[in-house]
Amino acid sequence: MSQPSQSKQILYFSAAFGAGGLLSLMVLFNGTLAAYGSLFFASWVPHLTGTVAALLFLIILRPKRAEVKRPPLWVYLGGVSGAVTVMLTSATLNSALALSGTIALGLAGQMVFSLFADMRGLFGLPQRTPLRRDYMALALIIMGSLVLIFFGSGS
């Protein structure tokens, strides 16, 4: 893979790790909504409040556009894929897979497809070949996650 400088790499790693922390909060907030309302509602509310929040951020921060030219239409469809994810997981949560099985298989699907996408440079993103170290890191982090998913909670 192309190697970003040491300090930039620490910034990227910390940002991604911090984003994972935000994801935990989202799961807690949205999961609490689902405990009171429907699963649709638990996905509909964060999309609604998120749209308003993103609009406010755009108005306040006014980020520069990278290109004047409009990108192809399909790049606007990431939200559909995200919304379908919510529906799929709500179906599997109530199956024999339960929460731990749903999360574990989801991690597997996510990592295999991410590696494939990197190797091919799918969707106009930079192509990169994972190193042996990347596979070692992958094995350790997935093993640790599986231990937490299957043995970390009281059940």
Partner: peptide, 26 residues
Amino acid sequence: LAILAGVLVSLSRQINGRLALSTSAM
């Protein structure tokens, strides 16, 4: 279905990342 959900998480991030290349992350 559970595996597909994981694939879609990654797919969504890639498509959004491609959009961010043309516009901005926000």
